[in-house]
Amino acid sequence: MSAGTRPHTRASLAAQLRDLGVRPGGTVLVHAGLRGLGFLCGGPEAVLLALRDVLGPAGTVVVPTHTPENSDPAGWTNPPVPADWWPVIRDGLPGFDPAVTPSRFMGAFAELVRTSPGARRSDHPHVSFAAIGPAAERILTGHRLDDMLGETSPLGRLHDLDADVLLLGVGHGSNTSLHLAEYRQPAVPRQRLGAARLIADGGREWVWWDDVRLDDGGFEPLGVDLDASGAVRLGPVGDGTGRLMRQRAAVDFAVRWLARNRGTETT
């Protein structure tokens, strides 16, 4: 470790989160990359405990628990797979089970929330969210297949609740709420999507739907302008940087930014 670093505890992290502006009793969507936060006494558990200490019993923690590999292999690009594999993968991919299926690429903090006692999870087979706290059911219920990150999704419910977004050790490229702004553009390209999900008898089925073609390619420059707008509070969390913002303000800014910088697109 470099000189000047020190271990960070539940208490010290809670103090930093309070200073950053986390609201007692609030609802917060968290995206976390813990590696950049330094030595955490207790790892992701210390971060979750600190956050819940600040939020209190009336607060709710929400995380993305997406499963991007549960998708049509014909669309895989990183890496692509041969076309003759596609039917094998479609037949063999385990069905998404909200209670069991782990998230992928979402990080240790998201997995800790997903597996915590009392946590709930939405049932979207591709872009689920998990939450713990009194607002969890309201946020997660009714996550429609064909509105992955739109108005009726958990992101839309968070917007209704005037929730916060907290980025810990990650930038706006991980800020899933910005996708809600894509849904609010006057015309956006759409695509056909598929995923496997568990059904009531313990079997599985392949489901298909049409939805917005998501594109986070411009989120980092969007985030630079969002930070500069004054809508984001920046401060130290551990050895890294925390960003806290009202989700409504971030989405409203992103709607205008995308309209200016990406323009309107047609299907």
Rank of each mutant, 00 (worst) to 15 (best):
R104Q: 12
G142M: 06
V212R: 01
H159C: 09
G92Y: 10
G107F: 07
G223H: 05
L198R: 15
M148P: 02
R114D: 07
T115W: 02
D146H: 10
G150F: 06
V113F: 04
D162E: 11
H126V: 15
D147E: 08
P94E: 08
D146Y: 03
A135G: 02
A136T: 03
P134L: 07
A195V: 06
R190H: 14
L226K: 13
V207T: 12
G218K: 09
V113H: 05
E205T: 15
P98L: 10
R104F: 13
V170M: 01
D123Q: 05
G92P: 04
L112D: 05
P186G: 14
D162I: 07
V212Q: 00
L161E: 02
W206H: 08
L166R: 00
T115H: 12
V212Y: 09
A195G: 15
D201A: 15
R120L: 15
E111R: 09
D162C: 13
E151W: 03
L112H: 11
T101A: 02
D147L: 03
D97A: 11
R114S: 02
S177R: 03
G217H: 04
L158N: 08
G156N: 07
P98I: 07
Q191D: 04
A181W: 06
T176C: 01
L140N: 08
R184S: 12
Y183Q: 10
R138N: 01
G218R: 15
R138D: 11
D162S: 14
S177W: 07
G156V: 00
L112Y: 06
G202S: 13
S174M: 06
P98Y: 02
F109G: 07
R213P: 00
P94Y: 14
V100M: 01
R204T: 14
D215N: 14
V100N: 00
H159R: 01
E111F: 01
Y183R: 11
W206A: 05
E137R: 06
T141H: 11
F105D: 03
V100C: 07
H172F: 12
F109Q: 02
P94W: 14
D215Y: 06
V212G: 06
A110P: 03
V224W: 03
R138A: 03
P117A: 09
D146W: 04
W208R: 09
R197Y: 03
L149E: 09
D91L: 05
L222C: 06
H143C: 13
L168A: 08
L161G: 09
L166F: 06
L140W: 10
V100T: 13
D225Y: 12
V165D: 00
R121Q: 03
H172Q: 10
W208N: 07
A200F: 03
G133F: 08
R120S: 15
A136P: 10
V170T: 12
S122M: 11
V165W: 00
W208M: 05
I139F: 02
L222H: 04
V207C: 02
G169R: 04
G203Q: 14
P186N: 11
L214T: 07
D201E: 14
F105H: 15
